[in-house]
Amino acid sequence: MTAYFMRRMIWVALLLVGVSLATFVIFFLIPANPAELVAGKSATPEMIRNIEHRLGLDRPWYVQYWRFFSNAVRGNLGFSYITQQKVAPTLLAAFPVTISLTVGAAIIWLAIGIPIGILSALKPRSLSDRIAMIFALVGISTPVYWLGLVLLKIFADALGLFPLGDYMEISRGGFLCWIHHLVLPWFTLAFLYAGWYARMTRTNMLETMGEDFVRTARAKGLPERRVVLKHILRNSLTPVVTMFGMDVGYLMGGAVLTETVFGLPGIGGLAWKGIQQRDLPMVMGAVTFAAVFIILANLIVDLVYAVLDPRVRYR
């Protein structure tokens, strides 16, 4: 187990290096000189050369990458070319926004998606099942940014029930106003995922119901409620939990589209703005940050499996 864990950790580190290296290389394809971005409106070529030297931009790309990497390991992600602010604290300041969005949306999509999936699976092909599944299909077919705009138009602009986007910290506006600002983004994001979770829960339930041990349980005369709760649900929700880990991990790296529509100052917005502004340190920071969560989520899911499921062998 320990050896397995160690191997996994080494691989995690390699993945991070790979992701950051690839991002770095992609950005070297972009013909924009960061020194000119830093230098501003009335820069002279001389000033630009000075800045290039100061930022190490006159060195080969692999030297520059090594500089990024060795600093990043020590938690220093450098300074933004555009705002001159330290990247790491900027990311950390944006992180609560991303967590708020992700966690709230996750609670909603679980609260909607899984019950719908279970009810549908218990009465497959019934009217309620069909309606629920069409609802789920619409959910996974809707462009999330468009849904955001529609909800904003209806609930924020026309009815005036919610703010037109924006974020409010708990420390400033209080808990209720924090929720008030996040309700629309939560539901926007949750609508998409609720669709996926309802479908997945239903499919897994149906699959499990056809398996031998369920038939055995029923044959033993166990009460239906017990069969469903104890045998079917537990077995069919395992893949859903896996999926949940991955999805949350992915969203922790920023939900670019939702953040853009609602003007939430989260990680995704930082990354997107950074790409537009050719702000390499910010992009490197944000992408690496996002990758950390994706990889961690994978790792946690795998480890939990390794502990829970004796069939997984540590190889």
Partner: peptide
């Protein structure tokens, strides 16, 4: 290397300092 430095390069000696 202020973005506004260009406005003040007419001051005697500014160029020498910037170099």
């Amino acid at each position: 290397n202020s973005p506004g430095i260009g406005f003040y390069m007419n001051i005697a000696g500014a160029l020498q300092m910037s170099r």
